[in-house]
Amino acid sequence: MLELIDLHKSFGGNHVLRGASLKVEKGESMVVIGGSGSGKSVLIKHIIGTLKPDKGSVLIDGADIAALSENELYETRKRFGMLFQMAALFDSMRVWENVAFALMRHGKLKENDAKEIAIEKLRMVGLVGVENLMPSELSGGMKKRVGLARAIAHEPEILLYDEPTTGLDPIMADAINDLIIEMKQKLAVTSVAITHDMHSAYKIADRIAMLYQGRIIEIGTPDEIKNTGNAIVRQFITGSAVGPIKVEGVTA
């Protein structure tokens, strides 16, 4: 379904991806873990093509997105929904207009119908009565959930979540985990989620992949990851400052 092959990406002298490869099956829920600044967000942006690799390719249903024409690329994107790490809400639009954006633009829905669906999606992420607010009037966690509602509003086949639960309280975070699982079970979506929250990762993942130094160094089911023999992965999932991953500049 989704395949990343040997991706390389640099920003100036900063070589972020150094041959990252990842394959996601149809209907699978893939979770990507990795240290802060390891390039997880960069990786996910390559899947939807807002970043282009310096080297390597991204295949969607076997087709290389670099070979698509501009129109085909935008058509392909209609199959995707993406939640940004910082939500990236349109700050000139009301909350419901954000959520209904794709519905009105591509679904050609009437304003009233689109608004109704938007309110419904907002309710799914635990937001009631905020539809007429502007994004600047929301808290960080609320923005995140509006972003999630916007990502799922047009019922895409493929969902990309960049840290869906960071910034949420534990109860809300678990409710969002359930929502992600529900999306997978009811709508059979294929998803790639980034998270630091191992509890959430174990709960929503079919498989977990770890990004380290620009490559996917380990991939497996939550059980396989829990019992990994890889010292780097072990250190990461147990959350220890001591181990092969060195924390630079932070002293106890």
Binding site: I48, T50, R77, F84, M86, A88, F101, R105
Partner: peptide, 21 residues
């Protein structure tokens, strides 16, 4: 200023992911 803010807050990327040029 408006487009610049939209760029640095990833709103322009968000437009692209919503299949909007």
């Amino acid at each position: 200023a408006e487009l610049g803010t939209m760029r640095v807050t990833e709103q322009i990327d968000a437009l692209e992911t919503l299949a909007t040029n």
